[in-house]
Structure formats: structure tokens, C-alpha cells
Nucleic acid binder design. Structure first.
Lengths: 211, 211
DNA sequence: GGCTATTATTGGACTCAGTACAGTATTACA
DNA sequence: TGTAATACTGTACTGAGTCCAATAATAGCC
């Protein structure tokens, strides 16, 4: 039961030790009140070593999601030319989601209120959203033979990435007993691919096709 | 020709003087190499006064867009219940865009490379994207009588806001001779409302309706 | 075993954004 | 003229992120 600090800690890599130390401290003292100094100390490592593994304190909140985006980029890079682009994105996103276990929610999304992070979480999380948009946009551009700064390509990539964010967020917020992430991602993507007019029927009017 | 500093500067409000001083300095020295101290000094005001008007250095990049989001929120708040929600959002966004003159591009979007800001621009810009998503989501929730953390509502709001970002970005990047922002916004919104499958036909296949 | 090049880690000094707070000037208003 | 509210300033502080030079650890090779 001696969990004081570095002494006695299993000798895994510094990176993992930093992640673990951070998770503990964020829960104890909130994200905002935890300093990098403290994290490094508990991991039994110097403050500078922290910056060998992470570019910023907020990176610690998004380890899980960053890995997911890397996965997505890899999946998309192996898609051969000629394959329908939107379906390929959807399939890749679903495959990535399928591998996320129920317990692997990003720190930022679960702890959020507990950790007193709302602002910091948000802006650092949005950096991930942008990176995912880039990944998707360059794939769409390649696959559809359009320039990568094309308005349609950028709009579609942003819309897809936005929908994916909504899915992850909603899933994380549903807490224990939530279903599987895949289902959330599936619903969110259906909205953007079939169109908002269809997906969000207005209670005051019949659906467009019925008018 | 005497543009040294505060002395001789027109006595407008401190806020405007800070904005002007910042714009000058960002162009001269890039955003990253300009300190708040310098901005305040050129505006003829103390460093602390800066923080009376702006919460962060990066706010200076987004003055124009922040005003646009405020406008959007106001427009939406006056929409009576029962009006079709998606059309209302589209109309409000178009009205806001219509009022943005050709010269009123946000600093962040035009100067970008000149100012050596890419990273900082991006993450601070994304905070605006999130705020706009919130505005749209709470409107949609109210209008469609759904909870505001509903997956469909969040996905739609994120998708719309993402598409709007793409529109503003593409418009700004097109430089002198670009058309009017309204046209960009209109195209981008059409994509998400009619659906990506329809809007982005795949060159390898006929459109879904034709298959 | 020892030798060497590379990589991981460290200490220390620094810049600057952002916060807190108390004190002073300025303005508005009676 | 006095008084209250508001705008501004000085000072001091915390903590993130950067830079650089020095040292420890490690891997590869003889």
C-alpha cells in the first residue's frame, strides 16, 4: 500500500509513469491545480523529462484520442484509389471506434467537471478535432481528385470531424452503463452523410419527402 | 509620419488603440514575437489595462469573428418557436455573412503565414468554433424540443459550425478578388443540409439516386 | 571484459502569459 | 464642491514552455 512516489513503482517507461502520475493527481487536486513539477516528482523523474515525452500539460488529457486519430490516419492511408471515399471514412472511423473498450474513455471527457478543466479541456480538445479534420480532408482530396483546400472537401471534413466529436462526447458523458462507442459514431455519421434535413425532421413540418 | 507611440495618437478608446497597435506589431514582428507589454506600450497604456479589455493575447486575432458569433446568437434568440430550425440557422448565418465587408477578414485568417501564428491561431480559432457550436446547439435543442446534449443535436451543431469554419477559411484564403462571403457560406451549408453523399458525388460511381 | 557513439535524463536560467490585489487617477453625477 | 463609481496603474507572484550545456545510461562494436 506504499504508493508514496517513485520508490517502489514498477519500472515501466517514463512515459507511462508520467501518464499514471498525472491521472492520479488530476483526480486528487483537479487538473488546474496540478503542476507539471508535481507530476514529474510523483513519476520519479525531473520536470524536463516531462517535456521529452509531452509537448504540453494538456496532452495528458488526450492520450487516448490521439492514438485513435493516429489509427484513423493509418487506416485511411491504406485505402486503395477508386474506393468510394465517404464510405471508406465511415468504415475506418467505425473500425477505430470498435477497438475502444468501455474503460478507455479519454481522461478529459470523463473527469471534466471533477477535474475543473472545462476551458483548458475544450481548447486542447479542439486541437485534436482540427488534426482529425486534416487527416480526413487530405484523404477526401486524394480520393475524390480535388484540391485539398477545396471548399467542399474542407466543409465535408469539418462536418465529419465535428460529428465524430459529438459522438465521443455523448458516449463519454453517458457514464457507466453506456453502450458501445461504435453505435454513437454510427448515428452521428449517418446524420452528416444523409443530410441534416433528413436526419433532423422538424416537429412542425412533415419530412421534406412527404411535403 | 510620427507614429512612434501613444503621443499624438488619436484619442479613441483604449480598446481600439490596443487592437490597432497589435495589428501593426503582428505585421512587423510576427504574432509570436510580439509581447503584450509591447502592444500596451504602443497603445500608450499599461500592461494591466490590456487585460481589462482582452482575456488573452490570442483574442486579438479573432475580434471580427467574435463579433460575428455574437450577431449569430442575437439573430437566433429572436426566432419565434415553431419556425423550421435548420432554415432559421441557415438564414441567420447568411445574414451575418452578408454584413461582413470584403476588407473585414479576421487578422488570424489573412496574415497567418506572415505572422508566424499557425499553431496559436488554430487552437484559439477553435475555441470560437466551439462557442458557435454551443450557440447553434442550444438553439436547435430549444426549437426542436430535444435535450441540449442530444447526440443528434450536438452532431448537427458541430457539423454546421465546422462547415461555417471551412467557408470563412476558404473565403479568407482566396485573397484579393475573392467573391462575397455569403456565397461561400451558402455552398458550405448546402453540403451539410442536403447530405454529404449527395453533395460529394464519387467520381467512380453514379450518384446514389442514379444507381 | 572494455571503448565509443548515441540517447535519456537532468539542472539551471530564462521569457512571458495570466492572475491577484491594492492604490491612484479619472470621470460622472448630485 | 464632494462623492461614488469606474478606469487605470504598480507590484508581485505562479507556472508553462524553451534553451542549453552537462551528465548518466545504454547499445553496439572490438
Amino acid at each position: 500500500m506504499d504508493s508514496r512516489n517513485s520508490v517502489g513503482r514498477p519500472r515501466t517507461t517514463s512515459r507511462v509513469m508520467l501518464e499514471d502520475a498525472a491521472a492520479e493527481l488530476f483526480l486528487e487536486n483537479t487538473y488546474a491545480l496540478t503542476t507539471i513539477e508535481q507530476i514529474a516528482q510523483r513519476a520519479g523523474v525531473s520536470r524536463n523529462t516531462f517535456f521529452n515525452y509531452f509537448g504540453a500539460k494538456s496532452d495528458l488529457l488526450w492520450v487516448e484520442l490521439d492514438a485513435g486519430i493516429d489509427r484513423l490516419a493509418e487506416e485511411l492511408s491504406t485505402v486503395p484509389p477508386g474506393v468510394p471515399a465517404l464510405a471508406a471514412v465511415r468504415d475506418a472511423a467505425l473500425r477505430v471506434a470498435a477497438d475502444i473498450g468501455v474503460d478507455r474513455v479519454p481522461l478529459a471527457l470523463t473527469q471534466d467537471d471533477v477535474m475543473g478543466t472545462r476551458e483548458e479541456t475544450r481548447s486542447s480538445g479542439l486541437v485534436r478535432l482540427a488534426r482529425r479534420s486534416d487527416v480526413i480532408a487530405s484523404f477526401l482530396a486524394r480520393q475524390l481528385s480535388r484540391p485539398s483546400d477545396d471548399l467542399l472537401v474542407l466543409s465535408a471534413a469539418n462536418a465529419i470531424s465535428g460529428a465524430l466529436s459529438a459522438a465521443w462526447t455523448a458516449w463519454a458523458r453517458d457514464g457507466i452503463g453506456r453502450g458501445h462507442l461504435v453505435d454513437y459514431v454510427s448515428s452521428a455519421l449517418e446524420i452528416v452523410s444523409t443530410g441534416l434535413e433528413v436526419a433532423l425532421p422538424d416537429p412542425t413540418r412533415p419530412a421534406p419527402s412527404g411535403g
